[in-house]
């Protein structure tokens, strides 16, 4: 009988220790400011500290190279030289320009075109004084928008903009593209579990240390606070959202958002408030999120044609459409009770 008592004791003790010992490994948490936004990381593992530091250093290096908001850097060099032939650029810049061309090709430039910069400037987007430009100015600047006018000479690491006045702005792709570089840095350091948030662009590596998927909140597009409308569970993915709410201004009662339709030159008015893309490539996810320009039907078609992404579309009448592959991974968590979840959106 003593044997049974011993077994019972061991059983109870193991239950007890399981109840007490469920402490998980703690991540190295860090935040910093770059790319005009806030960047957060939660990194697990032995090299977490080193990898986090490396990530911030790389982001700042690329930010300086690609920003058009401060002097110097490759993109300013390219823009200043528009219509004047080739300029030599860093190999990283040539790579992102190639990538941007590929992403523009997905929608033939209808959703995403990195040469929309002259219009972004005319509307004063990203400045403290956004404004409504004259119709004829918009018309003239739209004629300058064409990503196919970026000519790249791979052999000499050079690029050119064909017409004078043309400008490239990587603002719509840099965060997404850098997201892939961030996960590469984690992998290089032997990290298997991490999440990074680059101003709303999320990349996750692996799953959480307990093996469960990462839970990513999807912003409520009409909430000034950090309220969400739902949660999506992901492993080894990028989650990128494009919304009409991040920056906007109101003039004569009309709301103008920061995303310019490259075909019309005017801020989008597509019936969508936000598009979230979940894909393995963060750069592609960022590009595909510009489906917000196209509206629900054409936007969903773009995602379908790409074939390797899932999406959450939120319409102006507060309906949430989710692609079939997400149905068991997306959960409505809408404290405002204003949104309707429409299944089988794709």
């Amino acid at each position: 009988m003593k044997k049974y008592i011993c077994m019972l004791l061991i059983l109870c003790l193991s239950v007890l220790s399981a109840a007490c010992n469920n402490k998980l490994p703690q991540p190295v948490k860090s935040e910093d400011f770059a790319l005009g936004t806030i960047i957060d990381q939660d990194v697990y593992g032995a090299n977490a500290q080193k990898a986090s530091v490396e990530v911030f250093a790389k982001i700042k290096e690329l930010d300086a190279l690609w920003t058009i908001n401060s002097p110097g850097g490759d993109i300013n060099k390219l823009n200043d030289h528009a219509g004047l032939g080739y300029v030599e650029l860093k190999p990283e810049t040539i790579t992102i320009l190639n990538e941007a061309r590929k992403i523009s090709d997905l929608s033939s430039g209808a959703a995403f075109d990195i040469t929309v910069a002259p219009l972004v400037k005319a509307w004063g987007i990203g400045t403290d004084h956004p404004r409504l430009p004259a119709d004829n100015v918009v018309k003239q600047l739209v004629s300058l928008v064409n990503y196919k006018d970026i000519i790249i000479d791979q052999a000499t690491n050079s690029a050119a903009l064909q017409k004078k006045g043309q400008m490239v702005d990587l603002g719509g792709i840099a965060k997404g593209y850098i997201g892939d570089i961030v996960t590469d840095i984690y992998k290089k350091n032997g990290i298997t579990s991490a999440v990074a948030n680059l101003g709303g662009n999320v990349v996750v590596l692996g799953s959480k240390p307990d093996g469960s998927p990462w839970k990513i909140g999807i912003q409520n597009p009409r909430s000034e606070t950090s309220d969400i409308v739902g949660v999506v569970e992901v492993t080894d993915k990028a989650v990128v959202t494009s919304g009409d709410y991040q920056r906007y201004f109101i003039e004569d009662g009309k709301r103008y958002c920061h995303i310019i339709d490259p075909r019309t030159g005017y801020p989008i008015d597509s019936g969508l408030m936000s598009v979230t893309i979940i894909a393995s490539s963060s750069a592609d996810a960022d590009g595909l999120a510009k489906a917000i320009v196209l509206g629900l039907d054409k936007g969903m078609e773009l995602v379908k044609n790409y074939g390797k992404a899932e999406a959450i579309f939120i319409t102006a009448d507060k309906k949430i459409f989710v692609t079939p592959g997400l149905e068991d991974k997306f959960r409505l968590e809408d404290a405002s009770h204003e949104y309707t979840y429409v299944q089988n959106g794709g």
Binding site: F33, I38, D42, V202, W214, I216, G217, V231, V240, G243
Partner: peptide, 22 residues
């Protein structure tokens, strides 16, 4: 606040999610 680089975060157990895509 991006201009001042000041962040207020509320932390505690029971967080419903790991981060937010916006």
């Amino acid at each position: 606040c991006i201009p001042s680089k000041v962040v207020i975060s509320v932390v505690g157990q029971n967080q419903k999610m790991d981060t937010v895509s916006y």
